[in-house]
């Protein structure tokens, strides 16, 4: 009885409180890291954590409302988490010269290729499937 009311209180807390959801997601991450370390899986702990969370959601062991706001926070603020890594440019002054222009060229040309090929192939497959009446 007491255990049940505890669960209810915990759920209510998680559904209304973003901080509790953030802590819960941190828990899934740590579980993922733990499993990776213990089993020596060649997969990063964060990915294992993602898989566990997805399994919890898919099997309805966890309601989406219990983690949605926390997850949205992590994803919305992701830029803040990788901005420090971008400062690595400080260690690469050579990037401001000709090398930087070459890299920029590679990124622009490469991105155009990736976008064009992906979109055209998907669109062609879509038309084929459609003509077969499969979507």
């Amino acid at each position: 009885m007491n255990g049940f009311s505890h669960t209810v209180a915990w759920r209510r807390c998680c559904r209304s409180n973003r901080l509790a959801q953030i802590v819960l997601i941190l828990g899934f991450w740590l579980a993922g890291e733990g499993i990776t370390r213990a089993t020596g899986l060649p997969v990063p702990g964060a990915i294992v954590g993602l898989a566990i969370l997805l399994a919890f959601l898919g099997n309805k062991w966890l309601n989406i409302r219990t983690v949605r706001r926390g997850a949205q926070w992590f994803l919305a603020e992701m830029l803040l988490f990788f901005v420090p890594a971008v400062l690595a440019v400080l260690d690469h002054p050579e990037l401001t010269g000709i090398l930087g222009l070459k890299i920029l060229t590679a990124i622009i040309a490469g991105t155009i290729m990736v976008m064009t090929v992906t979109a055209v192939v998907v669109d062609l497959c879509y038309r084929i499937r459609r003509s077969q009446g499969r979507c």
């Binding site: 941190l26 991450w29 964060a46 954590g49 898989a51 997805l54 992590f74």
Partner: peptide, 16 residues
């Protein structure tokens, strides 16, 4: 801050 990219990765389970 960079370490928080890991729980952000876990969070991708929600949009999936």
């Amino acid at each position: 801050l960079v370490a928080l990219l890991a729980p952000a990765t876990v969070s991708f389970a929600v949009p999936i």
